[in-house]
């Protein structure tokens, strides 16, 4: 457990010193929200689509975060160094996952704030509880898929375009689930709260499955070539 936190802290410290999330990813995600608003150009449509747009922007931004999380490792063979220390590969995975989850939580909170300001969605008390639960479970799912597929393409040439191609079909169910649950939490009321909670259960299963798969396959993915 200490190793997990050490890896996560290392990633977050590197991230904090570079402030890439702050200066590049967050502005990008907000820009996506603004561009959607301009492209759709209809208040009613925006309010209905708000939840889906938030998660779409979050997915695009998450892929940037994941890419970054592996680029700092592969730059000077840092990942090899990390693996030569006696840390279990699965713990390295959990550490990186934790760091990505932390960054994505900040990102999604900003995005939801953006939706409230730009799209005029309202959240009441009951909705807020559902919203927080949805954000946490969906972010864990998003981060686990990202960390797993990020490891698959790490150190390969052309990984920038490969990661979206591989991760997006897998993320489709998560995108649907998170959008529906968030729709229920937002004021629009096209979906009732109970259905929203059911979707959150699906998100939780998704997160558990991909976290388990990532922990199991991380050793194979990162071990040096024989």
């Amino acid at each position: 457990m200490r190793n997990v936190f050490a890896v996560a802290r290392k990633d977050l410290v590197v991230e904090w010193r570079a402030r890439l999330l702050l200066v590049r990813v967050l502005p990008f995600a907000l820009l996506v929200l603004v561009l959607f608003a301009v492209a759709l150009d209809s208040e009613a449509l925006l309010e209905r689509a708000a939840a889906g747009l938030v998660w779409l922007a979050a997915m695009f931004a998450a892929l940037l975060v994941v890419q970054r999380c592996y680029d700092i490792e592969t730059a000077d063979g840092a990942l090899d160094m990390l693996l030569t220390s006696v840390v279990e590969p699965s713990r390295v995975f959990f550490g990186k996952l934790l760091a990505v989850v932390g960054q994505l939580l900040v990102l999604v909170v900003v995005l939801v704030g953006g939706a409230v300001v730009l799209y005029g969605v309202r959240v009441d008390a009951a909705g807020l509880v559902l919203l927080v639960t949805t954000v946490v479970t969906a972010v864990i799912g998003l981060a686990s898929v990202g960390t797993l597929y990020g490891a698959v393409v790490a150190q390969l040439t052309g990984r920038d375009s490969l990661l979206p191609l591989l991760a997006m079909p897998v993320l489709a169910p998560l995108l649907i689930g998170a959008s529906r649950a968030t729709e229920a939490a937002f004021g629009s009321r096209t979906i009732d709260l109970a259905t929203g909670w059911a979707w959150t259960a699906l998100l939780a299963v998704f997160a558990v499955v991909f976290t388990a798969a990532g922990a199991a396959s991380f050793a194979t993915l990162t071990e040096p070539d024989a």
């Binding site: 390969l156 052309g158 591989l166």
Partner: peptide
């Protein structure tokens, strides 16, 4: 269909055969 197009894209990448084998095997199992 898209998933396996992605799998083939990973296989086409210029990496050592051993690395290619490991990465794509994990993808195929998922």
């Amino acid at each position: 269909f898209i998933t396996y197009v992605g799998y083939l894209a990973v296989r086409r990448i210029d990496a050592s055969p051993e690395r290619r084998a490991k990465r794509s095997a994990v993808l195929a199992l998922l």
